[in-house]
Design a protein around this nucleic acid. Structure first.
Lengths: 379, 379
DNA sequence: TTGAAAGCGATACCAC
DNA sequence: GTGGTATCGCTTTCAA
């Protein structure tokens, strides 16, 4: 009477094997299987080995829904980004958050923003490790500072995805970035199409020591000669991502050397250069290619004073980094060692349609609030 | 002895309210709450109203993990794509599958491929409706054929995402595409940068009746005059996405009219045009811009015989369509009415890095391996 | 070192 | 119409 046996309707849905099936197969309890699968203490090595073998044989994949349902906690991922170039890293952050939102409560992000002019990244990663996050997305502003911490994380089996700069050899999971060499080469190819003399070119970078910058330089220097017969003289200006320095150096360049045929600013630090050129009425006469998109650059693009800018897909970089990390955490599939995105040449014609989709810096808080309608920056 | 009361460790994890909380609040059972929330028969209207009110007040969101765990079935989404331009739609399909994979077993895709030269799309959608899928991703090859079915789906509360062509006014959820006007305008702007005469331009399209094609035409015709002083004569060739026709028409064009200054092929049907030009040694002398990327086009791009091609992000279109649909199904948030991607100018320098990431047609089966249930309508 | 069992939230039955 | 409850796969805790 008390136990009413009811005909258990045999569900025809074929489910993938779970820990129950493994336990059943081995004639042990699910608790033991769990201990084996999760490296928990208190299990006989032999038992563990048998469990792992059975799991592999059955093609066991943990049911994330059940795991989440029970534990009430999803994957926790630390997002360690510099505050530095706000418009860029805010877009990266937005990309990460948008991608994470697709998983609802099953993924939780923790933001750690830091100043790249301190040892912020190390502190951020350290903090994340203390919180025992499941994975880390990191933009190493100063790769050298971050290296030891990335190594530490990897040793703790906490995968680290690097965006922008790399830290190879540290055990990081993957490096996501736009291809710097292609960026430079693309600019060179574009300039080569212009049918103009290119005997004297100026390239503004931050520093030759930054591989992103030196690769862009290498790209354009490799590309231009393929399209231009005459030999080219290169003015390489290292402005160290500093606005005042960029202003000073560009004014000096413009005043001392005449006959510049094109300018390529390979970092986001282009505004001082443009202003200096504008004051000398050089814009519109000398072709200028910049990098990234930010509010102050828009009027230059719209008016044609800047021919094109190289867009580095900050939003996509964030999304791709998240997806690679998430996939690894969930399925164990390692992404490619390095994921490089193609640079995109943005001109007047495709500027607005681009802004409409990936406009992180024109809204206030992204990710949390979904703005009902699109805001247009006034240019 | 038999019932060992154990101190239920109070979990500190704050969970969002579930049906249990609603039931508790109203002093009814969870079964009743379930009936109310899912429009199931056999519930008093008043009770239902009270439940809905309580759910809204508590901010109830169904726990997808629990739902999936119990039902064993995830969301089912039909992917209805033409077999037509294989390299393009295979990439779209890949984008959809990649995005779906992120959700593991919680999302199941069913592929319906059809021939765009029959009423394949209607049959595909009809089939999907019969299977009671949760949502449909559709590329309407012949929008007019698809319209009634999209309307039917929408009336059944089955959201439909249109990729490429639109079917507005049918109740479809969202339209995902690259911006056709921008594509044309971008080509015009690029040609304008070349510092060459552009008095006589040829534009190859499929048909003026296809809005994608007419918009591209409008784009370039709007753009070129902004960069070129002299008036331009336009040769608009409608090749109806037919290789033989394109060959015939381009030979006729090239033989009768001399002094062409540039060629823009606004569809993927560019090979016959290129071959015709190549036979007359015109490539490399007349700037050519094409559309899309496919294996046979690569040598033309690599050799510089084609200056650039307009990439329409097939993979991204697939991903974005899936994400929008998934988000809607899960959270109820409607995407924007229309999602337009910026066209991307691909040249020699960024070609390889692009191929490396989105290379659907260079590999064999994509996604097929994942979905065992892959239905192919014959066309 | 292992077994047993209580739930997590939603579904789908059954019994009233 | 409504209440009750077994169940999904996993984690976690207690008992042995």
């Amino acid at each position: 009477m008390q136990s009413s046996k009811r005909a258990t309707t045999p569900q025809r849905i074929e489910r993938s094997p779970g820990i129950k099936k493994i336990a059943e197969k081995l004639g042990i309890s699910i608790g033991t299987v769990d201990r084996a699968l999760h490296d928990r203490p208190g299990i006989h090595p032999d038992t563990k080995k048998r469990v792992m073998a059975a799991a592999a044989e059955l093609g066991y994949r943990p049911n994330l829904a059940a795991r989440f349902l029970k534990s009430g906690k999803g994957l926790t991922i630390a997002v360690c980004l510099p505050r530095a170039i706000a418009h860029f890293f805010d877009d990266v952050r937005m990309g990460v958050h948008r991608a994470a939102e697709a998983h609802g409560a099953m993924v939780e992000l923790i933001d750690y923003s830091f100043s790249r002019f301190e040892e912020g990244e190390a502190a951020a990663v350290e903090e994340a490790l203390k919180k025992r996050v499941n994975g880390i997305i990191l933009v190493p502003g100063r790769p050298s500072h971050a290296r030891p911490l990335i190594g530490k994380a990897s040793r703790c089996n906490i995968p680290v995805v690097c965006i922008g700069s790399d830290a190879d050899g540290t055990g990081r999971l993957v490096h996501v970035a736009t291809d710097s060499f292609s960026s430079g080469a693309l600019v060179g190819e574009f300039l080569g199409c212009l049918n103009r003399p290119l005997r004297r070119l100026a390239v503004f970078i931050g520093s030759r020591g930054t591989s992103d910058h030196s690769e862009k330089l290498r790209g354009i220097q490799d590309s231009v000669p393929r399209h231009i017969r005459l030999k080219t003289t290169w003015e390489v200006i290292e402005a160290h991502d500093n606005a005042r320095e960029a202003q000073h150096l560009s004014e000096k360049l413009l005043d001392t050397s005449r006959g510049l045929h094109a300018v390529y600013v390979a970092t986001a630090n282009s505004l001082p250069v443009l202003q200096a050129m504008d004051r000398r009425s050089l814009l519109g006469r000398i072709p200028v290619i910049t990098t990234d998109i930010y509010p102050e650059l828009l009027p230059y693009l719209r008016s044609g004073k800047v021919l094109a800018t190289v867009y580095q897909h900050p939003v996509s970089q964030g999304r791709i980094a998240f997806d690679a990390l998430h996939r690894f955490l969930v399925t164990g599939v390692r992404p490619a060692e390095r994921i490089l995105l193609p640079p995109l040449l943005v001109m007047r014609s495709n500027l607005d349609i681009l802004l409409e989709r990936s406009r992180g810096w024109s809204r206030r808080s992204q990710g949390a609030q979904r703005s009902p309608e699109s805001v247009c920056l006034k240019g």
